[in-house]
Nucleic acid binder design. Structure first.
Ligand SMILES: [Zn+2]
Ligand SMILES: [Zn+2]
Ligand SMILES: [Zn+2]
Ligand SMILES: [Zn+2]
Lengths: 136, 136
DNA sequence: ATTGACCTTATAGTGACTATATAGTTTTAA
DNA sequence: TTAAAACTATATAGTCACTATAAGGTCAAT
């Protein structure tokens, strides 16, 4: 039994964020003391830890809600869980590829200028302005 | 001389986004026809193309505003421009590294399950719940 | 008695759009 | 000529996952 501040400290999550998760339906409603303060138990701590680990994996709150629904009905096949992860992985992979392309782009642009010019002659600005560029 | 729709088509940017850029101070205020319609010239087209190329490089609107201020005062040294790009590049690089770490993480989690289990026995969900995880 | 730490709710801001609502104008076609 | 379609205008709210601020209630210690 603990109040929100202690839960926040244990879970490493801000109190505001805990209230936010509650409003988003990710955390079950806690009991309240007579003064209105929320009281949490270990179950809440576990739920919160689960959420935190999902967020580290960059799963969206919607995806987390979906995972929680699966946990609450544990006799379905897990196909959908694995499919979610697969899609998530390929999303991350395409983000990586896009960023690597962008990096190449930026590095070659940067190579168009040393530091000792006037804006007028800056190869970087010229490179952006002339614009032989390709998206993605 | 053209209206917003034509400019949007030429620049490949939605009309709403053009108005948004105007409100953000990235595009000079266009003249208006008697009916209130905006009228643009080639200068606006060039500005918009510059903005679009900056966005492809994932520069923020704030950074673009800064670049525009440099362009409008072309006799400073270009150190700040190059520094902005350097910082931008290292930001992109650390994003890449973070995503690569995340990808490894997700792939090894995914390997904990084949598709033929019940939720109860899903290695993926178990992997998240048990949580021997590291952030970043 | 008052400070300080803690708790409550509600509201607004972040970034870069995107969507919706409502209304006025111009162009095209029946 | 008139009605529909296409275009324009403004204003407002939604996206995502928080984060910040305001304004107040509660509790323990000084
Ligand atoms: Zn995902
Ligand atoms: Zn330069
Ligand atoms: Zn940047
Ligand atoms: Zn599974």
């Amino acid at each position: 039994m603990m109040r929100i501040g202690q839960l926040a400290q244990i879970a490493g999550i801000d109190t505001q964020t805990i209230r936010f998760y509650e409003k988003q339906g990710l955390l079950p409603l806690p009991d309240r003391q007579q003064n209105g303060y929320r009281i949490y138990n270990e179950k809440h701590g576990e739920r919160l830890a689960f959420i935190r680990r999902c967020r580290i994996l960059d799963l969206s709150l919607t995806e987390i809600r979906e995972l929680q629904r699966y946990q609450d009905d544990p006799h379905q096949p897990c196909t959908a869980v694995n499919a979610m992860l697969d899609e998530h992985i390929s999303h991350v992979q395409s983000q990586i590829i896009a960023l690597q392309t962008l990096e190449k782009h930026l590095v070659s642009l940067r190579a168009c200028c040393n530091d000792d010019r006037e804006i007028e002659a800056c190869g970087v600005l010229a490179g952006i302005s002339e614009g032989n560029m390709y998206s993605q």
